[in-house]
Nucleic acid binder design. Structure first.
Lengths: 356, 356
DNA sequence: TGTTAACACGAAAACGTTTTCGCTGAGAAT
DNA sequence: ATTCTCAGCGAAAACGTTTTCGTGTTAACA
């Protein structure tokens, strides 16, 4: 077992100083060609690689991005991570992942754990509990310590930082318009409680689309699911709720704010004897595995999670590397006027079998 | 913008030495009660938190685990990550994620990037390309440098390290037995090419179960999918291949080595007019979203990905913390006899609508 | 021969910790 | 009055780098 070799050991072995080794390895012309060759050969032989931690300490930057998300077993979030990892890696950064599990406390603990030097900046999506509490002090505290944050998807006005969001409103408008265009008269909405911003926006889109088409929104046709309970493990409840909903109302179109709701709606509808898309047409949000492989496969609003991740990472790294140089130029810690960017990722409707 | 405060700054501010501050904060009784109180109050006021990087450098351990997996947008792998993160966090570790994207080269690059001090140990699952090439030198090199590795799911005998695997063979035997027990006479197997160890093992389980029941395996009933092509984006090909398969053979039971194949098989079967589970019963492997939400929902062999992650993390951290003390005790770098552990996670059949 | 410039290298500081050891002064013991 | 003990604190080393600033040697120049 040969442990990793250090500059000091190379120096001792070759009877030169540590500084000489360092310079030789970086190809400094301060060192003679002879010594340089000798040192480089030796280093290669022993597979020398500089220690990242030491570099981080010296440079006061870790080349690591912290991702903080509510949940990882989730198609959308894992797609975003993939996007982040892709550009992070390409630009020489690593990615460290923390899960808040939708909990306010875990979110804070995780942030504090990472904010003490482990990372250069955050990319995060806010947990449901935090959204409910509307307590965002930990984000602002982190930013005030000089650590940049990029928020995606679940964002909030109270925090001043770069943001990457899906065009939820527009996407929903498009989806509902599509249903109308395909002949639906009584379009139901299956959504979440309002405190989740994406749920609220998608609901708003539904209403706007109806208004655009001079259709009066009927509150009976809106089903708000309480997703504080762990839906995945209470599928029966969900189905029951929807069954009631379908029985009470006459419906020929469904817009659901995520694919689980959409797929479940289809299942329930089929069970009640409706044919899809003949009797009822369905459009979901989020283009995940479920949409693709459901039968009938689901027409859906695609969020381009990977693009969101890529954009977020680019935004963060841009700011990180800009702040280096800006820092040198002005050397003023305070208030170099920062205007933050909000990137909106366009959605796209992917038509499959659940619409005519 | 107040940057993070350091020991040195506290020391200056309070006119004591850095050592005194450090000791006071750690509650050393070497420091008088007065000074201790003063320092602790000041530190709390300025929200002092020790810098992780400096600690890592000093302690020569980062309290960070590197995860290296082929793909993250994947139910099984993300579940494993969740398990790892859970126990890592509980035991004071962070988790850094690298994606090989099934590529040999990216696997190596990622390993080298992380092996230079950024992490204390690896938890990984081998990429397909690496399995194909059968080149495992990078794993052994890493281990020889004193960095422990835990492999899960896709493991290999050529590398000596702790391993956590699913009981693929037994799981498959159970699944096929279940089909036989439910009255299936002509059971088809839909599997991958043999170089993926889990595919091979599950195939083997299929054959063993048939033998146990004195049924002769019929090679016509085995469909090997070439998954080198990106299946997700070539669903049509997949369906076509299966359609041919179903047309040629008489089949009343299907065992598929993953849920995508199983769900697709159901889709094709339904299209051909078969009723599930009346005409054909289906069992898949991996209990993911698809299994749960397919219609009919899929009976499947559950792999307990989270448990795999938890076990892997515990194994790794145990070894990390043991090696500390062992190191102190013997102070011998070389060959303290290491016997590695292989943990087998039992599978469980979850019965749903696709079997009688 | 004496001054200078270039060259090749080393010493030391710095990043932020922890820890070992040594020092100082005050009170107790002799 | 002298030695001892101990409490309370500081200096310095160490972790592995990079970088700035010397410093000594040699060759070139006046």
């Amino acid at each position: 077992m040969k442990r990793k070799i250090t500059l000091k050991e190379i120096a001792q072995e070759l009877d030169v100083s540590v500084s000489t080794v360092s310079k030789a390895l970086s190809g400094s012309k301060e060192i003679s060609e002879d010594t340089t060759k000798k040192i480089q050969a030796f280093a290669k032989l022993y597979n020398y690689k500089p220690n990242n931690i030491a570099l981080s300490l010296k440079n006061r930057k870790t080349k690591t991005i912290g991702i903080l998300i509510p949940e990882i077993v989730h198609h959308f979030f894992s797609t975003v991570i993939r996007g982040i990892e892709l550009v992070a890696n390409r630009r020489g950064y690593n990615v460290i992942v923390g899960l808040s599990n939708e909990s306010f406390t875990k979110e804070i603990i995780n942030m504090e754990m990472l904010a003490n030097g482990s990372i250069d900046g955050f990319i995060l999506s806010i947990s449901k509990e935090t959204l409910l509490k509307q307590d965002y002090h930990h984000f602002n505290a982190t930013i005030n310590q000089g650590m940049p944050i990029v928020m995606f998807d679940r964002v909030v006005n109270e925090v001043d930082c770069d943001k990457v969001i899906v065009d939820d409103l527009n996407g929903s408008v498009k989806a509902v318009n599509k249903l109308i265009e395909k002949g639906c008269k009584n379009i139901a909405l299956i959504t979440t409680m309002d405190y989740v911003s994406v749920g609220r926006l998608r609901t708003q889109g539904y209403i706007e689309a109806l208004e655009q088409n001079k259709i009066e929104a009927n509150s009976n046709l809106i089903l708000k699911i309480d997703d504080r309970l762990d839906v995945e493990n209470h599928l029966d409840d969900l189905e029951l709720e929807m069954e009631q909903f379908f029985k009470i109302n006459t419906i020929d179109g469904v817009f659901a704010v995520n694919e689980l709701y959409a797929v479940t709606a289809m299942k329930v509808a089929k069970k009640l004897g409706y044919k899809i898309p003949d009797d009822i047409q369905v459009i979901g949000f989020t283009d995940g595995v479920l949409s693709k492989h459901a039968s009938p496969s689901l027409t859906t609003v695609s969020q381009h999670g990977q693009k969101i991740g890529e954009q977020s990472a680019n935004l963060l790294i841009d700011r990180l590397e800009a702040s280096n140089t800006a820092y040198d130029k002005f050397s003023s810690d305070d208030e170099l006027e920062t205007d933050y960017i909000k990137v909106v990722i366009e959605t796209k409707i992917i038509e499959r079998e659940s619409t005519k």
